[in-house]
Design a protein around this nucleic acid. Structure first.
Lengths: 240, 240
DNA sequence: CTTTTCAAAATTATAGATAATTTCTATAAT
DNA sequence: ATTATAGAAATTATCTATAATTTTGAAAAG
């Protein structure tokens, strides 16, 4: 849903009301967007300090727009700020991943129910193509972009901007987890889930489609993985 | 849910992570909080321009914290900003009220399902007291505060901070509408709805309670009212 | 009388500078 | 060895000043 690493959005409210106007982005928005990409993709690790002077220097700006960018990132839940003690990349544990998954499920189901009457065969074909692209993806970035496209395609026709913006933010939070846990060997169940949802939609079975989407988004799996140092640990998987 | 007029929160992310710490609020947070009160209560009308220099002067601050306050208000959906063209109080039409109501219903139901196992008789008694206070309220402020308290009491035990913060923001948006449409003669159905929800919760009927809450929040009524100038028009009512 | 154009005023956006707070580090004490 | 403390360095938060953009309003042209 969310552009995530391949072009993360920016401020939530901006998204709600300026998504289409979007004349020129301010320096603050640009900085927020680029930092969001790094946070979502894991380049900036959870807990990492974001120092306004350093960032201002890197982007050849003063720290005023940097501070505004921090507020935008806070609103997305990607950064946390303690007064007088600076801003850090938000941490996220399994409990938060669960919380985000539940919220996404609730809101995406709502969006799908309102979008369903406006879905055309053409849109569903595009969504199928996105699923196929996800199948063939061999890296997290590509997979996440395709997954994003699928969800966006079937939900956008709901025409509820605030709802879509909220879903976007939640998707960015999910994507962070995806990037941190991605393993190219994983055979996800995502393709099958996506196709089930599409099949129901094609047959006009909105309730069944909504239920499948809810289960799909809520699903969090776990499987053992081998770390770089050869140790075994448990990792968690999401279907996107 | 949201403090609304009686002490609106501030930044969403701040709420998520700093709600309990909340050592000292920064000037930006203070400005955002006070402006949010005015927007929610209707003192600042939809579409009104928020001029940073004027606001800075009023609060005896420079415009740097004012600009940050604007970003916080944007994140809550209470203000909209167009780059280089200033910030305005967000407008809201019936479609948006509907959208917010649907989102609230989806998220509050989710919160209630997770809160239900942790609800104690003491909490439910408090919630009943809040309902009673709402019944006796004769002005919008008091009524909204009591309604807020009811929802907060039964939802907070879910222990999902991001979810609760999102609900808070939506509640502020609802409250704006409530304040704009309040009429002291309205006999709302709220007390009955609240008591139905409580009755179900006392009997451990979580599904029924969740369904009642969803209907309650989603409900938007309309009734003719007489304006100050004596003209008749249609007004919309929410149950809170 | 309406529309267009251009300059002045108002306002936003950014930069540079200052003050206040926190964090770090070395040193001393228990 | 661990804890406590004081000073220094780094960082945040704010203010003042400057640049850039948009809006306003009046005058001129059609």
């Amino acid at each position: 849903m969310h552009g995530a690493a391949a072009g993360s959005t920016g401020c939530r409210a901006q998204i709600i009301y300026n998504r289409m106007t979007a004349k020129k982005e301010t320096i603050a928005q640009r900085i927020a967007r680029l930092l969001a990409e790094r946070i979502v993709s894991g380049t900036l690790e959870p807990g990492a300090r974001l120092r306004q002077d350093h960032i201002a220097e890197e982007f050849a700006a003063s720290h005023v727009p940097v501070r505004e960018a921090f507020r935008l990132l806070e609103a997305q839940g990607l950064a946390v700020s303690e007064p007088r003690r600076g801003v850090r990349v938000a941490a996220f544990d399994l409990a938060q991943v669960r919380e985000v998954a539940e919220m996404r499920a609730a809101l995406e189901v709502l969006a799908l129910r309102h979008a369903a009457p406006h879905l055309t065969p053409a849109i569903l074909d595009e969504a199928e193509a996105a699923t196929l692209a996800g199948d063939k993806a061999r890296d997290a970035r590509t997979w996440e972009a395709a997954n994003s496209r699928f969800h966006k395609l079937i939900l956008t026709p709901c025409g509820m901007p605030r709802l879509l913006a909220a879903i976007d933010d939640l998707h960015a939070a999910s994507a962070r987890f995806l990037f941190s846990a991605w393993h190219s060997e994983w055979e996800t169940r995502t393709d099958r889930d996506h196709r089930t949802i599409l099949a129901h939609l094609r047959r006009g079975e909105v309730d069944a489609a909504a239920e499948a989407l809810g289960r799909h988004v809520r699903w969090i799996g776990r499987r053992p993985v081998e770390t770089a140092s050869g140790r075994r640990r448990e990792a968690f998987v999401i279907q996107g």
